[in-house]
């Protein structure tokens, strides 16, 4: 691990109660939910991590505690460093505070997080669906969401599927 990252990691472990993990060259810090905005502000202002590269989530269903890991990857262009922060969240009512005041790109990424995973974001200025239609039910990228495929039509079941398919009349 880079020496600068070691220093940053030790500071964050004391300040925010973060847990450090290293995986094949990636430096990961598990941060509790209430400390995330301050951590991001600290990294952006004190250590020149000016780019929020990634803001996504991982679903670990059927495991419920934690069910989601919200992943933030910050890049420092001046120092050529990449650091990854994760928030473990439980299954019922997952909520995170918004970071759109720290990084502007987080606005749309948090909308995508709500749309695809159902993770509520507190304090977001414009919370609505971004990829699915506005009246859609459900959160598609969760692991328990059905794939939604339709049965392929081969020659042996051609007629049955033809009768069932909702063709438009005019």
């Amino acid at each position: 691990m880079d020496s600068r990252l070691e220093k940053i990691a030790s500071v964050l472990q004391q300040q925010a109660g973060a847990t450090l993990e290293e995986f094949r060259g990636e430096v990961r810090l598990y941060v509790p939910v209430d400390k995330i905005v301050d951590t991001l502000l600290f990294l952006r202002d004190e250590h020149e991590f000016s780019l929020l590269s990634v803001l996504t989530a991982i679903d670990f269903w059927p495991q419920d505690k934690p069910r989601f890991h919200v992943v933030y990857v910050l890049t420092s262009l001046t120092q050529n460093l990449v650091i990854q922060l994760r928030i473990p969240l439980d299954g019922e009512a997952p909520k995170i505070p918004t970071v759109s005041r720290v990084f502007a790109t987080a606005n749309w990424r948090e909308r995508e997080l709500w749309d695809m995973f159902g993770i509520e974001v507190e304090g977001h200025p414009d919370m609505r669906r971004i990829l699915m239609p506005d009246d859609w039910d459900g959160h598609p990228l969760r692991r328990d969401y059905p794939l939604g495929y339709e049965e392929p039509q081969f020659s042996f079941n051609y007629k049955e599927i033809d009768l069932r398919k909702p063709y438009v009349k005019e």
């Binding site: 059905p146 039509q153 063709y167």
Partner: peptide, 20 residues
């Protein structure tokens, strides 16, 4: 024509469900 390779919740399986 039929949804192609995308057999999922987001793609309309064949545009003849929408226009003739």
């Amino acid at each position: 024509s039929c949804g192609g390779v995308f057999n999922n919740y987001a793609v309309v399986q064949g545009v003849d469900e929408v226009v003739p």
